[in-house]
Every structure is written in C-alpha cells, then in structure tokens.
Design a protein around this nucleic acid. Sequence first.
RNA 1: GCGAGGGUGGCGGAACUGGUAGACGCGCCAGACUUAGGAUCUGGUGGGAUAACCGUAGGGGUUCAACUCCCCUCCCUCGCACCA
Length: 823
Amino acid sequence: MEEKYNPEQIELHWQEVWNREKTFAVHEDKTKEKFYLLEMFPYPSGRIHMGHVRNYTIGDVIARYLRMTGKNVLHPMGWDAFGMPAENAAISHKTHPKDWVDNNIANMKAQLKRLGLSYDWDREVNTSVPSYYRWEQKFFIEMYKKGLAYRAKSAVNWCPHCTTVLANEQVIDGKCWRCSSDVVIQEKEQWFLKITEYAEELLKDCDTLTGWPERVITMQKNWIGKSEGCEILFGIDGMDDKLRIFTTRPDTVYGITFMSIAPEHPLVEKMVTEQHRGAVQAFVDRIRRGGTKTREIEAGEKEGVFTGRYAISPFTGEKIPVFVANFVLMEYGTGAIMAVPAHDQRDFEFAKKYGLGIKVVIQPDAEVLDPETMQHAYEGSGKMVNSNQLSGTDNEQGKALVIGKVVKEHLGTAKINYKLRDWGISRQRYWGAPIPMVYCDTCGIQPVPFDQLPVELPMDVQITGEGESPLARHEKFLNATCPVCHGHAKRETDTMDTFMESSWYFEKYTSPSVKDAPFDRHALDYWMPVDQYIGGIEHAILHLLYARFITKVLRDLGYVRNNEPFSNLLTQGMVIKDGAKMSKSLGNIVDPENIIKQYGADTARLFILFAAPPEKDLEWADKGVEGARRFLDRLWRLVYKHINRLQQHGTPSANEDTGALAIRRLTHKTIKHVTDDIIKDRFHFNTCVSALMEMLNSLYEADDKGIKDADLNAFREALNTLLILLNPFAPHITEQLNKELGNPSLLTAPWPAYNPSFTHDNIVSVVIQVNGKLRGQISVPENSDEHTVFGIASADEKIKSYISNKPVKRLILVKDKLLNIVV
RNA sequence: GCGAGGGUGGCGGAACUGGUAGACGCGCCAGACUUAGGAUCUGGUGGGAUAACCGUAGGGGUUCAACUCCCCUCCCUCGCACCA
C-alpha cells in the first residue's frame, strides 16, 4: 500500500476498470426491483461546469446507494445535441455543427467519466443523429394526423439575435431565454402542437405529482392558468354586431358601468364613431407602436379612450359606454371585458381616472360598501344587491344562476379559459430535426410517408447566420416529391424546437438500440416512469411541462403506458461563488477539471455534497474543498497506519471488552445515522458526510488511546463499514482502501444493516433542568424512571444548590434524555 | 400587489413528531513536532469579565420546556405579474 493518498492514480485505475468491465450496464430483470434514476442531460457545450458536477454527483450517490440496497438501477446519460450554439460556433470557428458537437461530446464524456459517475454508457443517446430524430418525426406526423399538430399564422415571439421564433415559455420578461435579447412580435406561419388540448389533464395530474416540489407544481399550475366563467354577448347600439366578453364574475353583471376592449380588437375600427375616430386611432397607434414590452413596463398605468359607442346590457337593457383600453389583452379570452369597477381593481382604477360610475352589487357581511368612499374595489364574496331578482343571493350561487340564465336565453356560453397557449415548435434554424412535411402546389400540405423517414438533415450546407435558414437554400433538400400526386413539392425548411428532443429522451434510454421501433415495449414498460429525476429549477416550466405533454401524447398514440414521466423530482440549487452565479462576465468560474486535477474527483464530489443540501444554492469555497480533501487524507493515513495488522482476517466476537464495545457502538450508530439520512429528507447528504467525518474523528480518538489486539476485529469492522458507507460519495478511494484491506469489491457489497443492540447505551446521560433551565448532566441506567433520576440528580451538589430547599412541584421526564425539576 | 420558500456564530450549515441550540466543516486562537511550514497533530472557539445572565430577524403569546406551535411587524430570495 502506498503511504500517500494519490487520488489521480487511484481514480484513473478504477475508472479504467469500470469502463472495461461495463460495471454499470443494466438489463431488465424481473426478479429485482427496478429504479430509474435520471439527471437532466446536458447540452454539449464543450466543457462541463460546476452545475453539471453538482447535478450528476447528487444522482451518482443515489445510484450507487440504491445498487447497494439491491435495486436494479437504470442510470443513463446522453446529449441534448441540437440547438443554436452549435450553429453559432460553426460560424465563428468555421466548423460544421456536427463536428463541433461530436467533438464536444467526446470531451464532456471524458470529463464525466473522470468524475467517476456510474452511468450505463451503452445507453448513451445523441439527439442529433437520424436514428434518434426519425422517431420524433414519426411522432410529429402521427400528431398531425390526429390534429395535434397544425400550421397557422399568428403573432409569434421573434428573437432578432437568434433569428428564430420562440415559444411563449421561452420568453422570460420579454427577453429570449437563451440570449436575453428583446423579443419582438411578428406575424408568421408556423407549426404548433396542441398542448392546450391537454391543458386540463396537465393541470389535473399536477395533483398526482406528490414527489415534486410544491413550488414547481405551483409554477406549472399558474402557467396553465385555468379560470372558469362564461362568455356573454352584448348588443351594440346601432350595429348588428355583438360584443363577446369573457368573465369569471358573472355574479357582478348588474354592476357593469362600462366595457373595455383591446386596441387590437377587430371591432374597434367598426365601432368607433366619426366624432371619436381621431382620438381612438391615435391611441391605438401609440399602444401598438410601444409593443408588448413597453406595455408590460407601463403596467399599472391604465389608459383608454371612449369609442363613442354603447353596448347594451342583456340583463338590464342599459346603454354602457365602450372604451378602448391598454390593459385589455387581445390574446386572452375574447379581447373584450365587461367592467365592474366596484368589484375589480383594474376597472376601479380606470373608472376613477375617467370619472365613470361605480355600482356596488356585492355586499360583504363585515362592512357596507359605499361607491362614494371606496378606496379600492371589493373583490371578495358577499350577498348580491342591486341585482334585480337575484338580490339577496349569495354571490357564489349567483355565479351559477347567471351562467344558467346566459345559457338558457342564448346570451352566451359557460366557458373555461387557460393562459396556456399552443406550443409553437418551428425554428428558422439549421441545426435541428427537420419537420417532416412537404408543400405540394396541387395537394397542399402533406406529411412525409413513414417509410421515407427520416428526413435527414443535409450535412453539405453553408452556414452564414444571415438571411434564411441554410435549408431554404439547399436545392437537394428543398425539392421533394409529393407523396400523393408524385408531382413537385417543396420541403418544410423549419426545424423543430430542441425541447422536442428532450421531451422523450428518457423513454429512449430504456431501449436505445432498437431499430425498427422507437422503443422496445417490454423494456419501456419495465423501466418507466423515471423514479427520480434531478435537474435545475430553471426548467420548472419549459422542459418539465413539454415532457409531461409529450408523454401524454405518446400514451394516447399507444407508445407508452404511464401518464406522467417523472414520479419524483429534485431541483438542485445553483453553484455560486462570491454570492453570484458563476459566469464568464463576472470572472468567478471554477473549472471542475482544475479541481479534479488538484484534489481529485472524490474530493470534488465530497465537497459538493457536504457544503449544502441539494436544493439550496451552494457557495463555492476553495477552503472547503481543502477540508474535504483533508478528510480523505486522514482516512487514508489511518488505514495505512494499521494496514499490516488489519490484513489478518477476523470478525468481532460477541463479548468484547470496553474498548472494542465502544468502537462497535460507534460503527452501528453511524450505520443507523447514515442509513436514516441518505434517502429521507430529500437527500440531505451533507449530514451523512458529517456523520462519516464524526466517525473518523472518533476512530482517531480510539487510535490515540491505542488499538489493542483485542480491539482489532472491532476496529476492522469499523473501517470496513466506513468504506462502504462512504462509497457512494467517494467511490474511488473507498474501493482502493477496501482492496488494500483484502476485501471483495464494494460494488458487490450490500449496504450494511445495523445491530440495534449497539445503537443504544446501557448508561445514558440525562440533562437536568431546574425550572426549565439547564443546570447539569448526570449518568443514569437506561430506562430509569423519574424518581430514580431525581434521586441521583438531587444528590448532585450543583443541582442541589439550584433546588436549595424549595419544595418540588413537578418532575417532567423525557426518558433517557431530560429531567425538568419544577420548584 | 399576489403566491411560495426563507431569516440560526466571522462563514457554509446541524438540531427527528416542542426536550442539552450551534453537530460537521471552514476560518480564527493557543500549543506540539519541525531548519521551515501554507504539512500534520492536540486543545479552544455564540456573546459576556472565568460570573450572573443574554442569545435562533424584531415584538407578543401558549407551555414545565419554543429555532420548532399561535398572533403581529420587518427583511431577503424565487416565481407570477393588468389573464378579466
């Protein structure tokens, strides 16, 4: 055995063994309980960063631990290989995106292996290869045939920097999710997937995701944004057209004092009277020019102009003035609303600003609302007033009654609205999966027949980053044959959003090598769903919503059985340095490769696991890394010191002297501690690591006193156990030391069970409080009752002085822990 | 504004269903071994004068006992942000 711990040598050795022997390859095995553990696969940017190290280390601990408990663990890794940066790199480095990506994958794969991550690399998936995306193209066509994929012209989010369209989910605060450029709105034809068709199920099934963080569920629910109410048609004075509005508060229809419509509403032009045309036109132009961005910034400042036109209430027959207002959104509901200032804050502010009427129709029990003195709208519940025959009704019942009336009298319909929009997946980019459709002059839009898939992305392209996608200029790709009339057709040149590939890769891992179908049905059914998914919170909506959607679609297409892809979700925090996210611009990046070179992978892993619980942000501290390394050095030295004695074999016997017994207690208490902590509490590995540190500290103390020959078996048990317990966290050093000790590989070692007779003591120390204040500590036999403990305690001089001679009113005993003496 | 999660030593963080606050690590202090040490080892380390006592954002409450439960206030982070 080497005297000095040399992580590089040890780690490379074991990694080579694992690689050569395909140690972590798994197969379906019905005799074992399966566990599908997955971390979000990376974009092959070229180098791994600390966020990856954290994500994958957390996963690896779980994988290695679960294997030791006998589970059949699927733990795969792959590459989300399509996407913009490859094209940008191609432009700036004059390489082909494919070469750039393949090269990056090779680098990153080596880096991941260097971390000792226990993946089944035989299942590696690369989303940019035709054998992967051909199935995605098939799914797309099947969706098209079911009406779940359609082409439409609509206002879309356009990122001028990426020169492509973005989905709603990919616009964050009016900026592109990837490059932070301001997004502009453009009219474009593009392909949509009907995620709205699944809105209700996606919302409803949130309640089945009991293993997901509450805040992710909340974000998804908010994004789907369901609201129930009704649409009501209002007549327009002097016109045949009707004004359709959506409201969730039909109980307040008697409180309408005006109407508001969006500046983009098609009826604006038609409704506005000659007298008001100039003012309305000026207002609409100004709002339009500002675009969505300024409109959001100016949120709060409500503005509008009168159209000169009146709507007619189908409930009261009253004439109601119609305004064009900046806060009414064309893209939600019907683009027009009824305004009830007494019971809606926005309408209230608008009414105050323009001196419009306020009419109270809901009266709460606690106060009497007076339109004259109200400072803000009352949006709560109460009794309906000023509402004709409905006056006196509870407003919640009133909602249903008004909807009933609306439906019965054909004034409108009951309606559920969602904020969720269909998913626009067309990207005007080269490096993506081609959308498998052709345009025939005679037959119109036609899907490519299945037997002609994949529609391969041509490799011989010129990527300039300017103008149209290279595909639009690629004659051979562009020109196709119509599958129906065999005449000339043109191919769709847009590619799919890369979130499509990441919406089903976890299913592909279950059977990566099948060729004639996307999945092997038996493998899929055996492994799915993913039991534990781990990744960054930044995908709370984007990826996780799309993946849920596509899973449900694949279920309905007959490919998969499960309703949801991920049973449990862990969202790990960021790795930060000097209080900020690591970034090039801040110059606070720590390169994992340097850390591994300097300290070793085991140290890097250990530090990352120890420094913070997984869901919290982790502050990188170089000194902390040294602490982790020190622990491993100490472990190495202790084994080295005793290696010759320890190599003899033997197991601890039943009756040991006190030294051996103390060591065995330590061992079994630590097993209990680590076993209890490792999985429960959402993987708080930091306390596991600290328990192992404590154990090592205690073994050093024992060693200080001298390990007698009689203690040797207990000492050996302690070290062997420590190595097993530490193995998921630091797999290389533990495997090496374990080998030095002459034991069979830890890969086949079962997770140890603790012996309960060693996890508690016969003599326990009990805290003594007098009147709730800590006054001393005494040793008593286990399970002593309050009188016994009090007897011993009151004999203690110090405690006696606190009791003095006051009568004891009460004794409160927490068995084997605490006695509170109330005097 | 709404929703969620938080506020514990100089720092990262422990503390199970109310029961020794500050485990473990970093840093710091002292000592040992050393030519030396940024190596290693030993001891100490919430504040306070070694005391009484005070301490888990602040204030109040329940309790024999509160970081933990209840009420009020302040602050931080994240998400949503005119969705009718």
